[in-house]
């Protein structure tokens, strides 16, 4: 049976892991390659690198990081952050990544999804959606210039309950998260990486309702992200949210849980994992 995946996410800036990684038994906790290798040994099913770099020079550094990682670990590697063109995707994939994760650029230019999928296959294209619950009173239109195009809103819908934010969660675009997920999949997204902005960094659990809404609507794998704080949270995302994979950063980086520990917990609860 297909196993549920446990995925550590590493934010990388200027060739270093940021957001604090705090391990014992790791000579250099800031080196992405070494950190990825550490997680491989711990039983991670996949590694996600998020390039949070702003400058062009650092993008070059990131290519080196991707390449060295792909040469060192024999696990699937997804790279996201700052990918704007098919050429960007090609460079990352040719340096050894297996998948690219698109966020802001896909909202700005949904055709990028179709072009990437056509060129590299749907299995390479992950759409990262940062979603935030909006209340009725709070449903202001996105500011002009930041909004998703009228065409995209026609296709994917205006926000109903969960709204898409871009630029690292800073910019709202007036787009419904569920509609956007469906539309992205129709264009060729092979996987959805779904982050709850409300839960991210809170350790209060994944947003199960958001997960259920998206997993109920798309027929591609959905990775739950944002909010993991207890072992039960991982279980809930899989069992109640129907997530195919669970992603976390801080609980792994700070050593609150070992990946093996999460897997053992899930296994005891009857979830299929790769032990």
């Amino acid at each position: 049976m297909l196993a549920k995946r446990i995925i550590p996410c590493l934010d990388v800036n200027a060739g270093r892991v940021v957001k604090g990684v705090n391990f014992v038994n790791l000579t250099d906790a800031g080196d992405p390659v070494e950190t990825a290798r550490f997680y491989e040994e711990e039983g991670a099913d996949e590694i996600v690198f998020l390039d949070i770099t702003a400058s062009v020079d650092n993008r070059e550094t990131m290519m080196g990081v991707v390449k060295r990682t792909a040469e060192t670990i024999f696990l699937p590697l997804t790279v996201g952050g700052g990918i704007r063109t098919v050429e960007d995707m090609r460079r990352i994939l040719s340096n050894g990544a297996d998948k690219v994760s698109l966020n802001t650029a896909a909202v700005r230019n949904p055709e990028l999804i179709a072009r990437g999928a056509g060129e590299f296959g749907v299995q390479c294209i992950v759409i990262a959606i940062d979603a935030k619950r909006v209340s009725l009173g709070d449903r202001k239109a996105a500011k002009p210039g930041q909004a998703a195009s009228d065409e995209l809103i026609r296709e994917a819908g205006a926000p109903v309950e969960y709204e898409v934010f871009v630029n690292g969660g800073r910019t709202r675009v007036g787009l419904d998260a569920i509609g956007w997920a469906k539309y992205a999949v129709s264009l060729g997204a092979g996987e959805i990486l779904l982050t709850s902005i409300d839960r991210d960094g809170t350790n209060s659990g994944y947003d199960i309702e958001l997960l259920r809404k998206i997993t109920g609507e798309v027929k591609v794998p959905v990775i739950a992200s944002g909010g993991a704080g207890t072992l039960e949270h991982f279980y809930d995302a899989i069992k109640d949210g129907n997530a195919d994979a669970v992603l976390a950063a801080s609980v792994f980086h700070f050593g609150k849980f070992k990946i093996k520990q999460v897997k053992n917990f899930l296994h005891e609860k009857g979830i299929t994992v790769r032990l």
């Binding site: 049976m1 297909l2 196993a3 995946r5 099913d45 696990l75 699937p76 749907v122 299995q123 092979g190 996987e191 027929k219 591609v220 794998p221 195919d244 994979a245 790769r274």
Partner: peptide, 30 residues
């Protein structure tokens, strides 16, 4: 089930193979 079939799944040996030296039945592959 979702397509693509993506992730870790078990390989169940059907018979002996020269590829199987030192690996176990029903291990996970990507």
């Amino acid at each position: 089930l979702k397509v693509p079939h993506m992730g870790w799944n078990q390989v169940e040996f059907r018979r002996d193979s020269r590829l199987y030296s030192g690996v176990h039945d029903k291990e996970y592959a990507y």
